[in-house]
Design a protein around this nucleic acid. Structure first.
Length: 278
DNA sequence: ATGCCGAAAATATTTCGA
């Protein structure tokens, strides 16, 4: 099973390009972020024509997460338990949840597509929201693992954190001045290891970025950052046989500013008789 | 050439992204 995470930066603008890539690369499951549309606006038919089913969550032109899969999906879950909300200018609890999390089960593997809040700037309320969101995600993930021993679980998505200086090739992102590299954000990312999740791509792809800003020739200069991850528990990591960062997808006409991150999973008992949507 | 930001709602300019 070949699984990917992809911040697509508008599925309506880029679905044809994404589908071409999925078919060409024989991707079974994609966790999308920043679909930027409501479910009724999602170009479902184009995916179905290519053999992929869609489950999506979107509330407006902002955020939005989805799964496309050519293997059966079950147990679709919108939002994770305890997921915080955010409303600009609002204070206190009970703010509305944004469209940043959707979970599915495929072939006995639990997958989440996650679009972690940006943080915007040091000192911005959005950064406190980001850190709270990540803390609650860790709590929920710990619960899933204790309640489902042996279940392979992966958190896939745009974490909006640059874990180490080696992951930062953008000269405008500066420790001490910028979000994504603050000690608090880096500690929050590292804390996922404390609950038993590991970066399943880095051991197989030791270098490379997943995002390059559209501005200032960031891609031609290779001044990117690594912010898109597939974090898995031990059961998930044990299935991973290969990984890749598809930087070719940043080239050409109309790319997303992110590229897909892919892992291959070897699942015992699988064969070519698995049901598929066609 | 991998080339100087793009999407979306609104309809000109603003918000958001990292």
């Amino acid at each position: 099973m070949r699984v990917a995470t992809y911040n697509i930066n508008s599925i309506r603008s880029r679905h044809a390009r994404a589908i071409d890539w999925m078919v060409r690369e024989e991707i079974d499951v994609v966790a999308f972020q920043e679909t930027k549309c409501k479910p009724e606006q999602f170009p479902v038919e184009a995916f179905e024509e290519a053999g992929y089913e869609i489950v999506s969550h979107g509330l407006s032109q902002w955020n939005g997460v989805a799964f496309a899969s050519r293997l059966p999906m079950s147990d679709v879950e919108i939002n994770f338990p305890g997921q915080p909300g955010f409303l600009k200018g609002a204070e206190g609890p009970d703010q509305p949840q944004e469209a940043r999390a959707i979970g599915v089960t495929v072939d006995g593997v639990r997958l989440w597509s996650l679009y972690v809040p940006n943080g915007r700037a040091l000192g911005d309320p959005h950064l406190a929201y980001k850190l709270d969101w990540l803390e609650k995600l860790r709590t929920a993930t710990s619960e899933w693992m204790t309640q489902n021993p042996g279940l392979p679980i992966a958190l896939m998505g745009d974490f909006n954190i640059i874990p180490t200086d080696e992951d930062n090739g953008d000269p405008t992102i500066i420790v001490g001045e910028s979000t994504h590299v603050s000690p608090e954000e880096r500690a929050s990312f590292a804390a996922f290891a404390d609950i038993g999740l590991m970066d399943t791509v880095r051991p197989l792809v030791p270098t490379g970025y997943t995002y390059w800003d559209y501005k200032q020739l960031r891609f031609p200069r290779n001044e990117g950052v690594r912010i898109d991850f597939i974090l898995g528990n031990q059961e998930f990591a044990d299935l991973v046989t290969a990984a890749g960062i598809h930087r070719e997808e940043r080239k050409g006409d109309g790319p997303s500013d992110h590229v897909p991150v892919v892992v291959d999973l070897e699942i015992a008992g699988d064969d070519d008789d698995r049901p598929m949507f066609l």
